[in-house]
Amino acid sequence: MASGRYRLLKQIKRYRYIYLMILPVLLYYLIFHYATMYYAVIAFQNYKPMKGISGSRFIGLKHFISFLESPYAWRTIRNTLVLNAYMIAFSFTSAIIFALMINQMQDGKYKRVVQTVTYMPHFISIVVVCGILVEFSESNALFNDVIALLGGERSSLLSDPRKFRPIYVLSDIWQNVGWGTIIYLATLSGVDQSLHEAATIDGAGRLQRIWHVNIPALVPVIVVQLIMRFGQMMSIGYEKVILLYNASTYETADVISSYVYRRGLYEMDYSYGAAVGLFNSVINLIVLFFANTLSRRLTENSLW
């Protein structure tokens, strides 16, 4: 034990600059993710900021019960899960397919242009993107012009609950597909060329090489990415939901985080918001745990 500790100290001394570099990240997590856990206690209180945590009344699980009994509990949970399932099914996979496609292209100007053009939208602020989407979705605007051209009927797209998820997911693909390819392209460029040569000699065509060489090489990265995606599942994208939804699309659009935002910040019901937020995290933990276990069973790749 003593020698172990001694060795650690010695290591820290030797690599002190590397340890110094990791310090800000460590502090970030300690301050913003661990220290704040203490304040989750307001979820069990009737919290009044002026009275502080010690002065506010303790009410136990009342907020949790009233959330679960409210008509919005199931709807927001369902919407959160469904929207994320859509995102994983379409947005997450589109980046993988797109990366495989780019990888097949000859190096050159055209490839670089395609990559740059598809990266660009990622850097536009979500507020701007949603502003554009809202404008384009009006009944006399661009999207409807296209729909009308194809023989469809003009309507206000963002006031129809059935169209909210497609708009959300398609615009996300447009915005993030290029950016999402980066990590896969890096992996693909590391694939041993001799594998491709061997496959070609064995008579494998282009599609067969993608299927038997490229995809197996990507699987570990995909699994890690997928598990991390599950980890963010309950919190991701709520800004976009808030910017795009309105009361007539709550049916499909209202997710747990947007509900927390309305109750907690807009109506200043801090305790209730904190309770639902905490509930959200618990669900997320369960989802993450399942995803990890499932992945370990099926592919032998997992986070832990």
Partner: peptide
């Protein structure tokens, strides 16, 4: 009533 009454700016 305008179809866009909810979002018109």
């Amino acid at each position: 009533i305008s179809k866009d009454f909810m979002s018109i700016s």
